[in-house]
């Protein structure tokens, strides 16, 4: 029960910190670390338009019912500007997913981007594809898309495990530019050797997508709150370590 109370207290504190940062930065332009992966996403639309190729976005298997739900939401937020631009020029990316609930959210996301641009009649339901619910089957099938041809670049954002290496390997063999980010340790181990630092988002960096591609101050407030809470957690760990070493707790 104590753990639950502590968790609730932490969530409440996080909420208060987020509100304070949100109010404080309401009208301010806050600078934060830029990640080249998000900057490159929009230029990929230009490349795709020039080459007549397709942008493939692999969203992984993060179900909206599971622990990875927020990872999937953050991935879609990071892709927002790119999807918007692609909808405006009708150069739609092909989004693939291995989870039915994420498939529904992603379809709605792309449809809304077309609607915002007044281009809804050009939206096609097959732009978002559910491939397979099993992570390995999903990755294997997504990899075969590269060999079918027509794909100009692949972006992997979302929840994966080590099976992501199947997609990365296929993109390397086909000479397709790829970049991505994920929150799971197994997939980071697979991505790290294959990607240059400017192609990779590690762990929490994935959550900065909204702030990178949108002007909404709440995303920047969220990053500020995240930094503050991280410092707080580190201090708490140090205090608990010292106290337990002294035998006080």
């Amino acid at each position: 029960m104590l753990n639950q109370w502590l968790a609730l207290a932490f969530v409440l504190l996080a909420g208060i910190v987020l509100a304070i940062y949100g109010i404080r930065n309401r009208n301010k332009s806050v600078e934060f670390h830029k990640y080249p992966v998000f900057d490159a996403l929009s230029s990929e639309v230009g490349h795709a338009a020039e080459e007549g190729s397709i942008i493939h976005v692999a969203l992984g298997n993060g179900s909206l019912f599971g622990e990875a739900a927020m990872t999937s939401v953050a991935a879609l937020q990071g892709l927002d500007a790119m999807i918007d631009l692609a909808a405006a020029y009708d150069m739609p990316p092909v989004l693939t997913t291995g989870d039915p609930t994420l498939y529904l959210l992603a379809t709605d996301w792309v449809r809304r981007a077309y609607a915002r641009r007044g281009n809804l009649q050009r939206f096609r339901p097959t732009l978002v594809r559910f491939i397979a619910s099993n992570p390995v089957s999903y990755a294997a099938m997504a990899a075969t898309y590269m060999f079918d041809g027509g794909i100009g670049s692949t972006t992997m954002l979302g929840d994966y495990t080590q099976e992501i290496s199947l997609i990365v390997d296929a993109s390397v063999r086909c000479g397709i530019y790829s970049a991505g980010g994920t929150t799971s340790l197994q997939s980071l181990g697979a991505l790290y050797p294959s990607f240059k630092p400017d192609q990779l988002l590690m762990g929490e960096e994935l959550f900065s997508g909204g702030a990178a591609v949108s002007d909404n101050p709440i995303y920047k407030a969220s990053l500020g709150a995240q930094d503050f809470l991280r410092i707080l957690v580190v201090i708490s760990i140090l205090v608990v370590t010292v106290l337990s070493s002294l035998g006080i707790i």
Partner: peptide, 22 residues
């Protein structure tokens, strides 16, 4: 360290949705 950062990102993304600002 990586998991801690991910947990913080998850909590704040969830809170943004629960607060109705996102």
């Amino acid at each position: 360290g990586v998991l801690l950062g991910v947990a913080l990102g998850t909590v704040l993304t969830g809170l943004r949705i629960i607060f109705g600002v996102d």
